[in-house]
Structure formats: structure tokens, C-alpha cells
Design a protein around this nucleic acid. Structure first.
Lengths: 131, 131
DNA sequence: ATTATAATTAGTAATGGTTATCATTATTGA
DNA sequence: TCAATAATGATAACCATTACTAATTATAAT
């Protein structure tokens, strides 16, 4: 079996995700980490993002369009995507766990969790449209 | 402006999606349509799937992993994805529209809809695991 | 029916995000 | 300090999707 070894690059990637709350793409993380490690490679970023996600230390987001995003906050929560500017924000509302039971009633299988994305137009884009 | 012209290939693609309920990928649609049009090209399938989705006649699904899937049923409904076999099935439960209002309360913007995917293990895979 | 037009197609090349490969470097435990 | 091996940087490969183009097809006007 494979033992995990410490890596400064992985730390930097993790730190980046803990510090940012804009749910960056792999490429955005790459640009961030490059400020500290100018020679870091995109492959290293992808490899570690996948590793961390598989370990459950970060979360993958598939918001619909565009590349995969990552979230350093593993606490279950919902997201809102603005269809104008594309920004992804956290929604400070409770996750409706009872939906899993309800869904399980009608599917026959076993349901463990659900992912919900809300779509619309964010405050800033609404204001911009008014002008 | 561009007027839509009739196309037999597009009809076949639409018919394929109305007939199947397994939420096929573009490639799966391509294989289906090729039985009637052996020379149809994958590009044609993609082009028409996107056109139909933009017109609102079909729906795109991004279930998390793997390529995009398509759904001929545009009526709002939830989906269940089995993490073992990957199959995507419809859930015959009501869509909780009130969640949009609730989410809107805490985000400041305007929320029009939400997409929810349920994850777990389907009946068949549960039974298979017992053996 | 013939023709002009513009949309659609098949075939293929290109793109973009992601993963795999591999020689070299860094970490860790003895 | 040294051996074992995980991780890296650089690069090539991969795969889903999109773009391009000459040829074809559908439509509307003649």
C-alpha cells in the first residue's frame, strides 16, 4: 500500500483552497500556487486536487458548464451560479437531508446524498442590468 | 436571422431521445442514429443536440463524472445516479420549487431554478452486492 | 418544375481540459 | 547517511467537444 509523503506543493494547493472562497478551477489554483512555486506544473496541481478530493479533504464541483471547480469547504452546503457572470457562491442555508429519504422511497435503491445547484442572476449583475 | 430548416438527421436524434429513457451521451445517441443513417457524423449529432437543448426541446445533464448526457423529457424532475454502475434514472417525485425562494432569501440575487442529483446505489447493484 | 438561397451535412482538423508517462528530485524511516 | 519510494516538472497523450469546409439538401421564389 501507498504511504502519503509530505509535499510543499500540496500544502500550497490546500492553503490556496482554504483561503479562497470563489471555488477556483484547477487552472486558477495553478496560477495562485505559481506565485509561491514558480515552477509548479499544472499536472501537479491536477494530481493533488484529485488526491485531496479522493481523500475527502476538498470537494469537486460540476456546476454545469465550464471546467471542474474545487471547494475547500467540505461541510455540506448548496451553491448558487450566476448565469450572467458565472460566479459560484455559497448559500448559507440548511441542506435538506430529508430529501434523500423522500427520493429513496421512489427509487428502490439506497440514497446517500444529493447535490443541488441553484441558477439565476446575482445581485451585482441585476444592478448592472438596471443601469 | 437564421431560419431553421428541416433535417432528417435531426428528427432521428430527437426520436432517439424520446424513445430512450437512459439519458444517453452524445456518443450513445450517435450509435443509435447510425442504425438509420450509417453515414451520420458525430459532429452532426453534437450540433443538433446543442441546438435542441438551446431551443429547450431537450435537456442537458451534468451528473458529475463522465461526458454530458441528454434527456428528452424536459418536464422538471430529479435524477438518481448509481455510484456503482453509473446508470442515471428519473425520480418520480415532485420538484421542490419553494427551495428557489428559500435560496433567494439568502443570496440577494434572483433564483430561477435548481438542479438536484441524488447519489447512492441502485436496487440492482445492492442485490448484486448481497450475493 | 427550375432555380437561387441559405441551412445542413459528412468528414476532418483543431481545441481545451484532464490524465499518463518518465526521468529527476524530495521526503522519510532505518 | 543512506536506501526506499512518493512526488515533482516537463511533456506527450487522451478524450469529449467544437470549428472548419466543400458538398448536399431543404425551402421559397420564379
Amino acid at each position: 500500500m501507498k504511504t502519503l509523503k509530505h509535499s510543499r506543493q500540496r500544502d500550497a494547493i490546500m492553503n490556496c483552497l482554504m483561503a479562497r472562497h470563489d471555488h477556483p478551477t484547477a487552472d486558477a489554483v495553478y496560477l495562485s500556487v505559481r506565485e509561491e512555486f514558480p515552477n509548479v506544473s499544472l499536472g501537479t496541481v491536477y494530481r493533488n486536487l484529485n488526491l485531496l478530493a479522493d481523500l475527502g479533504e476538498i470537494r469537486r464541483l460540476n456546476c454545469g458548464n465550464g471546467p471542474e471547480r474545487f471547494d475547500g469547504d467540505t461541510h455540506p452546503h448548496y451553491h448558487f451560479i450566476c448565469r450572467e457572470c458565472g460566479q459560484v457562491t455559497d448559500l448559507p442555508m440548511d441542506v435538506l437531508d430529508q430529501m434523500n429519504a423522500e427520493a429513496q422511497e421512489c427509487c428502490g435503491g439506497q440514497i446517500d446524498n444529493h447535490i443541488t445547484y441553484f441558477y439565476g442572476v446575482c445581485r451585482e449583475c441585476l444592478d448592472k442590468a438596471k443601469e
